[in-house]
Amino acid sequence: MARTETLRREIASLDNKIGTLKKDLGKQMDAATRASTAASRKQSEASRTTSNSTRRMAESAAEREAKKAALATKKEGEIRAKIADAERSLSQKHSSLASAERDEQRARDREAASRAAKERSAQQARDRETKKRQSQEKAHAREVARLSQLPPQIRYVTVQPPSPERLRVLYLTANPHAVETTLEHPDGTSETSGTWLRVDREVRAVRQELKASRWRDLVEVEHLPAATSQDLTSGLNYYRPHVVHFSGHASSLGLLFENEEGSQDGSDVTFDLLARILDATDEPPRLVVLNACESFAGAESLLRTVPTAIGMSASITDLAAITFAAKFYAAIASAQSVATAIEQAKIAMLNASLVSDSKLPQVLARDDVELASLKLVKPSQ
């Protein structure tokens, strides 16, 4: 527990204690007043009576009341002393709390400064790497220009083995439920609001991560926005993708593609039908990634066609879907295995405080597939 929290609790306890003592003080003051009044009354009765027995009884009663008044006065003094001690302690606690709050604020300031310094250092390192890469590219371009100006020469060049095949990713996004409204203000300005999935932001984040990856040239992303089921078939024929990725709406029954007629209602494609579409090609993809809510429910159906399928076990937020996709493909483009890529994406979600969402990505593979050794990008050695 933080020092400030402990002090605040101690201050609250002292405030309660002082309040209780003040109530007790009031009671003792009332008791002393009542006893003194009663003693004076009895003493007055004793002085007025002519009966010796009545006088002795009144004087005895007056003496008892006087003792009660004295005792109450004594307790009153003790309580006042306790109140004074408690108030001194309370003042010290307030001083200690103010000092502890200043210390904690200084610690937070130091931590913030340290984070800022680390971020500046990291940014400077990235800037240096960018400048180095740009310098190398310029040097290469100058060398190519120089060689192009030299007279032709006959060279005996050893034929190199072909480069590894580029990983082709067919990236389909669909958002048929998107609703957008534009409000015109009297001053001529306009404001646009709506409800839609940020699938374009996801593709942008993936491309940015790929640009920063070591073997970015070995990954080719073909994005088909507002995709229909027919776009999927055409994409399979034209691009022959190794990976098919879908981002959009889904349920435990299937995916929601754009409607061919442009309707906002969308077009449902069950997981069984999706498996048949993926199978209706001579070169089915090696991996299907369904970055959509409850899409992992269809993974088992897809294994009839593809060896590996990734999906989400429940509803996933926009930010979580974007974070997962960006970090997953960043790892793939760094020649990491599918298992490692999924783990790195989950860690990135945890770092973004998306704790519950980090549990959603799930993978299912055939028995002959070892996810820990399945690498989709294989750079030349």
Rank of each mutant, 00 (worst) to 15 (best):
R166Q: 11
R166S: 10
L167M: 05
L167N: 02
R168P: 01
V169L: 01
L170N: 01
L170G: 03
L172I: 08
A174I: 11
N175E: 07
N175D: 13
N175A: 05
P176L: 07
H177I: 02
A178Y: 03
E180H: 00
E180A: 03
E180I: 05
T182C: 07
L183V: 15
L183C: 04
L183K: 13
L183T: 15
E184T: 14
H185K: 12
H185P: 09
P186F: 10
D187H: 12
G188E: 01
T189H: 09
T189D: 08
T189Q: 08
S190M: 08
E191V: 01
E191W: 00
E191S: 10
T192F: 00
T192D: 01
T192E: 01
S193G: 06
S193K: 04
G194L: 01
T195H: 01
W196D: 03
W196P: 01
W196C: 03
L197E: 09
L197I: 07
R198F: 09
R198G: 13
V199P: 03
V199W: 02
V199E: 07
R201K: 11
R201S: 13
E202I: 05
E202A: 09
V203M: 09
R204N: 14
R204G: 08
V206K: 00
R207G: 02
R207L: 14
Q208N: 14
E209R: 13
E209Q: 13
E209K: 15
E209P: 05
A212T: 10
A212K: 14
S213K: 10
S213T: 07
W215F: 15
W215K: 02
W215M: 01
W215E: 09
R216Y: 08
D217K: 07
D217E: 12
D217R: 06
D217I: 00
L218I: 14
L218V: 13
V219Q: 02
E220W: 05
V221N: 03
E222H: 15
H223Y: 06
L224F: 11
L224Q: 10
L224V: 13
L224A: 10
A226C: 04
A227R: 00
A227T: 05
A227D: 03
T228V: 04
T228R: 10
S229Y: 00
Q230T: 15
D231L: 12
L232K: 06
T233Q: 14
T233R: 13
T233V: 14
S234F: 12
L236F: 03
L236I: 05
N237R: 14
Y238Q: 13
Y238N: 09
Y238T: 13
R240S: 12
R240F: 08
H242Q: 15
H242C: 05
V243Y: 05
V243I: 12
V244A: 04
H245V: 09
H245R: 05
S247M: 05
S247R: 01
S247C: 08
G248N: 03
G248C: 04
H249T: 06
A250S: 11
A250E: 02
A250Q: 06
A250P: 06
A250I: 06
A250L: 06
A250M: 06
S251R: 06
S251V: 08
S251E: 10
S251C: 06
L253N: 08
